[in-house]
């Protein structure tokens, strides 16, 4: 079995397929075992469901093992055989875009931004988050001027306040430290 991730990033990554399948199998097995401690009425449906899912996942693993053992026919575009045996794997599929083509730096930058956004959100609430993140993100990632960032955030905050607070009387997310 080899990873078939290539420069286009358009095909299923064989390693990821194994990891996802095994992870879901782990979740379903845990769900099945957890249901055993409940009263029969509460446990029946989850046990039947997780049992069925475990069966399906084992079937998928069998397909994957078969695909790993039997080399696929030589083609210019390699398609994972396990997916193919399941009737899947469209040769005409477009590449999945930025997820497959972005480099490690882009991934690191985007994920770091998200971590900062949600950390600030949980600590200080949405108002502070939008101000800090909005201005910072536009300045550092968007390469916009500070004035542009302030205007952008001002308009965004105004719209949020008008729609959520004034018009719909809905509360805004508050943080642990700065409600």
């Amino acid at each position: 079995m080899t990873s078939d991730t290539d420069s286009t990033g358009g095909r299923v990554d064989a390693y990821a397929e194994w990891i996802i399948t095994l992870a879901v199998l782990g979740i379903m097995s845990t769900a099945f075992l957890a249901a055993r401690s409940w009263p029969p009425d509460a446990a029946m449906f989850p046990m039947v469901l997780s049992g069925l899912a475990i069966g399906l996942l084992i079937l998928k693993l069998v397909f994957m093992v078969m695909a790993a053992l039997v080399p696929p026919p030589a083609t210019t575009e390699e398609t994972p055989a396990a997916d193919e045996a399941d009737g899947g794997g469209d040769l005409d599929e477009p590449p999945p875009g930025a997820f497959a083509t972005a480099n490690g730096r882009a991934w690191g930058e985007a994920l770091l931004c998200l971590v900062i956004f949600f950390t600030v959100l949980s600590l200080f609430g949405i108002v502070v988050t939008l101000v800090v993140f909005g201005i910072g993100y536009l300045k550092i990632v968007g390469h916009r001027s500070l004035i542009f960032g302030v205007i952008y955030v001002g308009v965004l905050m105004g719209a949020v306040h008008l729609l959520f607070v004034q018009l719909l009387s809905l509360p805004l997310p508050e943080g642990i430290l700065f409600p």
């Binding site: 449906f45 399906l56 399941d86």
Partner: peptide, 19 residues
């Protein structure tokens, strides 16, 4: 999306979340 087995597994996961 052409992969019925994956679809069934994902549906099972969805039902599990609904429980």
């Amino acid at each position: 999306d052409g992969s019925m087995l994956k679809g069934l597994i994902m549906a099972s996961a969805g039902i599990l979340i609904s429980l």
